[in-house]
């Protein structure tokens, strides 16, 4: 806190200058928290980061298991959870499945990983 700031009032319930922005609504807070709950896991963050930085923005389970040194069921589980939360989309191509970040979420995920 800079010492140049005016002496704080001792009364906590002092008249405040009203904020110019409204606060987050309950609904916004809930949807945001739900999304954060899904991604607040180190492995999931690494998966998102790997997919996001992969050349075409798409990865297969095998790419991820290799990069992370994790077992395939573990990676598949995380992919499933994030797909259900509509953070990832699956794109089957032949016998393979490519995972991409849901386009609508791309900016949001990018913000989190920055």
């Amino acid at each position: 806190m800079s010492p140049a700031e005016p002496a704080p009032s001792s009364r906590p319930s002092r008249e405040r200058t009203p904020a110019l922005r409204a606060t987050l609504s309950r609904e916004q807070a809930e949807s945001t928290a739900a999304l954060l709950r899904v991604v607040s896991d180190p492995t999931r963050l690494q998966i998102l980061s790997l997919i996001r930085t992969s050349p075409d923005g798409a990865s297969r389970v095998a790419d991820l298991t290799r990069a992370l040194g994790l077992r395939q069921p573990t990676v598949s589980h995380h992919l499933k959870v994030m797909t259900e939360a509509e953070i990832l989309t699956r794109r089957p191509a032949g016998r393979e499945v490519w995972y991409m970040i849901e386009p609508a979420r791309l900016d949001a995920v990018g913000d989190l990983l920055r």
């Binding site: 807070a29 809930e30 928290a33 739900a34 607040s40």
Partner: peptide, 18 residues
């Protein structure tokens, strides 16, 4: 990832966000 996940976990609560 561990650090970021821990921070996001702390934020992943509607009341805390509000």
């Amino acid at each position: 990832a561990d650090v970021v996940a821990a921070t996001l976990k702390a934020l992943a609560d509607p009341l805390r966000l509000r």
